[in-house]
Design a protein around this nucleic acid. Structure first.
Lengths: 261, 261
DNA sequence: TTCTGTTCCCATAATAATCTGATAAACAAA
DNA sequence: TTTGTTTATCAGATTATTATGGGAACAGAA
């Protein structure tokens, strides 16, 4: 690999994540940290990045805000939750990723894993994976919903029939101790529901804003979810009750990646 | 191997990968690194590449035009063909759109129609439709192929089982009077083949460059295609033979699109 | 604060690529 | 055949790049 290739790879990563850690990139490109450090200083000379302790931050001029980086509500919480969820993914796994913002953040966190087979019902997530990973990507099929570009309907349900995965990762619209896990859109909820029953382990990601409300369509009962990941702002009472009902509850501190300004 | 051949081979590699390593190319062409080095310096003189330590990088201007050309060889022909094909679409139709460049142009031509239900196996085409139309969009599902972002495999085949459309619009890799209609990728060909049998009327789009060659996987025999749309550059003999075998052949004049928006 | 694990920085070693000029091979014209 | 020209190879010295390791500096947690 030419130094130029290495640097454009670094740039590509930066355009996606805004910041980069030397330890991460040196591992993924199989060169020593010193080499990356030198690259980053060189790129700083050219005005492409700003070097900071542990990594670098992309120069704003070069950072085009893609839809993927568009601010979503509670972005910091969602990213932290997604990061924690990604720790459940092991090299070689076959996983399902649901649609939604949190799921998209989750997708970005697993790009460095190896040999995954990923099933999804979200067009943007499939595109992201095809562009930035070497995973086998399988999309469910079905009617495309306008706002989320997620899939639902008979074709999707038939597609699921013969698909089984090790782990399923789900965002969710609402969590309530009585109503269970619920969503607004009926078709999408049905997809999530089916995939949960086709997944060995169900990991659910929900930031604090999702708790103590309910939507029309139940995706899962409390018992059907194995792990729930949420942030520190969530009402502790609900979490206690979930724990009593055998859900493993993980609470993450909201953090940047250590390289924020 | 002539020096000229060697250099055009280097150029070919560069157009594909943007950069090249002397050690790699010298190995694959079985000449010493010194020879390649000399070639690269010569090519730098002619403004084709930039020589860097360890290899060379293609001149940007050169690369981008080539890349665009490759993405849409015969763009004018394809657009004209797509426009003609779009005339077959009536408001309220349920249609299938195959993957590929011509199919994408076709998609852009039907955006002004009303109340369509569109089935496709191409991620970019589905995205285009969701963003710019109010059609019901159904995507087949399946494994995502990297380069075309098209879908294939068991999930796709199962999805097709219960889907029937009024009209199917297909691009095609190769047309030969003996081999019939063929494509390179086995999985995609299978999808196209299945959809043809689930479609009342099959309309096929192929510019002149596709004729009198054959690829590995047959998509359809000559008899299975109802309408073939091509451009004026196509060999008339083949078209005559197709007409004899009951294909409706339409030839479009290639129009300049200099004033198009 | 102190402790702990990183990261940084620098000198040096190891590896890889370049440059140079001499030599050999291929080929055409005399 | 000889001769001249072109082209590719080879060897060695030189230079560029990357890796390694150790002490200093840093950041986060107890």
């Amino acid at each position: 690999m030419l130094p130029q290739d290495r640097q454009s790879e670094i740039m590509k990563q930066l355009q996606k994540f805004r910041t980069i850690k030397i330890s991460d990139i040196s591992k993924s490109l199989n060169v020593t940290r010193e080499t990356i450090r030198k690259d980053l200083y060189e790129m700083e000379e050219r005005g492409l990045v700003r070097k900071v302790h542990g990594g670098a931050i992309i120069n704003k001029a070069n950072f085009e805000t893609k839809y993927i980086n568009r601010k979503s509500t509670n972005e910091a919480e969602k990213r932290s939750i997604a990061k924690r969820a990604a720790e459940f993914v092991e090299d070689g796994d076959t996983i399902y990723i649901d649609y939604g913002t949190t799921a998209l953040f989750f997708t970005q966190e697993i790009l460095s894993k190896k040999d995954l087979t990923v099933v999804t019902n979200s067009l943007p997530i499939a595109s992201e994976l095809v562009d930035y990973s070497d995973f086998d990507v399988i999309i469910l099929g079905g009617s495309v919903r306008k706002n989320e570009k997620s899939l639902f309907g008979p074709v999707a349900y038939r597609g699921i029939e013969k698909i089984y995965v090790d782990k399923g990762f789900f965002g969710i619209g609402a969590v309530d101790i009585h109503a269970g896990y619920t969503n607004v859109h009926m078709g999408e909820s049905e997809v999530s529901r089916l995939m949960m029953s086709h997944s060995q382990k169900n990991i659910l990601m929900a930031d604090y804003s999702k708790f103590n409300t309910a939507a029309m369509n139940q995706v899962a009962s409390i018992e059907e979810v194995d792990v729930l990941i949420t942030d520190a702002n969530t009402d502790q009472d609900v979490l206690e009750q979930l724990k009593k009902r055998k859900t493993v509850v993980l609470t993450v501190e909201t953090e940047g990646n250590g390289l924020d300004e």
